[in-house]
């Protein structure tokens, strides 16, 4: 069943709310991006493969990047939630 569109959903949102919605989108997309990047080394083995040291550096770099982005996103998301918006927007449920 598709999530029924809430009847009172406004068509246009205030800038802050709009930004917050896009942040939520980004937070949902982050694991997908991470998964793609973690699976990317599979392509290296089409032509020969690589050294463990290089692969390790790559994986740990991606890992660190994910942690940093997640830290920023969750900080902003939590602050937004504490800042008066007790309820989630209608599109909060994915």
């Amino acid at each position: 069943m598709p999530p029924d569109p809430p009847r009172d959903a406004p068509l246009f949102l205030a800038r802050a709310t709009y930004r917050r919605r896009r942040l939520m989108d980004a937070a949902r997309l982050l694991p997908v991006v991470g998964a793609v990047l973690f699976l990317l080394p599979m392509l290296w083995f089409v032509s020969g493969g690589t050294r463990t040291a290089v692969g390790g550096l790559y994986l740990f770099a991606i890992w660190t990047g994910l942690i940093v982005i997640a830290a920023i996103l969750s900080r902003v998301l939590v602050r937004g939630e504490a800042g008066g918006r007790g309820r989630d927007g209608p599109d909060a449920a994915p």
């Binding site: 937070a27 949902r28 890992w63 998301l77 994915p94």
Partner: peptide, 25 residues
């Protein structure tokens, strides 16, 4: 087996980094 061990840690990383999508619910 070299770097394969790291998948055991990468999987949970992906899940918790995407907390907004699933774990929160």
């Amino acid at each position: 087996s070299g770097l394969e061990f790291v998948t055991i840690y990468l999987g949970p990383t992906l899940v918790i980094v995407g907390w907004w999508a699933m774990l929160r619910k």
